[in-house]
């Protein structure tokens, strides 16, 4: 539509303000991690890198980071398998309740995290507890995988809708077995969708705190839980600042990867 010049300028201003609103808090954390003053007075008077070396030496933070990565990898692996299976079932078959499935997959992420958290917690206590399996890394992975399935499912489903079944039929006509068709035709077609979905799943898991609070056993601390536990301790503030700054810097990596994998739309929907 033909917008007047003032309207264009107004929109441009809103955009600029919006981006400022989004980025100023993140920049502040970055600068604060170099703030030399122990009380983090603002604006900072002198800059130092000693908090960075202190954070690097912090055993708890490093341990928590490793735990988060392990949990993320486990949850992503399960989400990749389950999400792909559901996407194939929904896209390639017609069956009773098909429309309900997309709602079901979305449910763990659409419901408030605390609900998913206590539901899984009480189920784990009453079922797995009786089997003698306590809460720990395994229960974290189970909890995370439950809400990560949707990212893989959505990405693979969109890809399957686009590609259709012609190539697979051609492969079968040419005498390939079901396994060969999957290995040489289907899998390469959905590979980048799997990568994009897996990346989102990992990011969701890596960042999750609410469900984790309820599914983590004693002694298992993921990075978000570590940050939250140390957030209100003034003497830990310098290390928390650095960990926060590192996480902001690292957030560029998945965006860059997603761009390389599948173009700008790859990471557009987080679910």
């Amino acid at each position: 539509m033909t917008l007047s010049a003032p309207a264009r300028w107004a929109l441009r201003a809103v955009m600029a303000l919006g981006l400022t609103f989004i980025y100023v808090p993140l920049l502040l954390v970055l600068i604060n991690s170099f703030n030399g003053d122990r009380t983090f007075a603002w604006p900072p008077h002198d800059l130092t890198t000693r908090w960075w070396s202190a954070a690097w030496a912090n055993e708890g933070a490093r341990e928590a980071l490793l735990t988060s990565i392990r949990a993320g990898l486990g949850a992503t692996a399960i989400a990749l398998v389950l999400g792909t299976m559901i996407a194939f079932a929904v896209q390639r078959f017609a069956f009773f309740g098909r429309d309900t499935i997309s709602l079901l997959v979305l449910l763990p992420i659409a419901l408030p995290g605390i609900v998913t958290g206590i539901a899984l917690d009480s189920a784990w206590r009453s079922v797995m507890g009786d089997l003698g399996i306590g809460k720990g890394m395994f229960s974290i992975i189970v909890g995370h995988a439950t809400f990560c399935v949707v990212t893989v499912y959505n990405n693979v489903l969109a890809r399957l809708r686009r590609t259709g079944t012609n190539l697979e039929e051609a492969s079968a006509d040419l005498g390939a077995s079901g396994f060969q068709t999957f290995r040489y035709v289907t899998f390469p077609l959905i590979r980048s969708a799997l990568l994009a979905g897996g990346l989102l799943a990992f990011a969701l898991s890596f960042d999750e705190i609410i469900v984790t609070t309820f599914t983590a056993g004693p002694g298992v601390t993921t990075l978000p839980i570590w940050i939250f536990n140390n957030l209100f301790r003034p003497n830990q503030a310098p290390v928390v600042n650095v960990v926060a700054a590192v996480l902001i810097v690292l957030s560029v990596i998945p965006v860059w990867l997603a761009q390389r994998i599948a173009g700008p739309q790859a990471g557009a929907g987080r679910t």
Binding site: L26, V29, A203, P224, S251, Q259, A268
Partner: peptide, 25 residues
């Protein structure tokens, strides 16, 4: 394309880190 990336990138920054940033602010 770049504007989409600019909106997208903070999504990957941790939820807690963003809440923490506001605690400082």
């Amino acid at each position: 394309h770049w504007l989409v990336i600019a909106i997208l990138t903070p999504l990957w920054a941790s939820y807690l880190v963003k809440a923490y940033a506001w605690r400082i602010l």
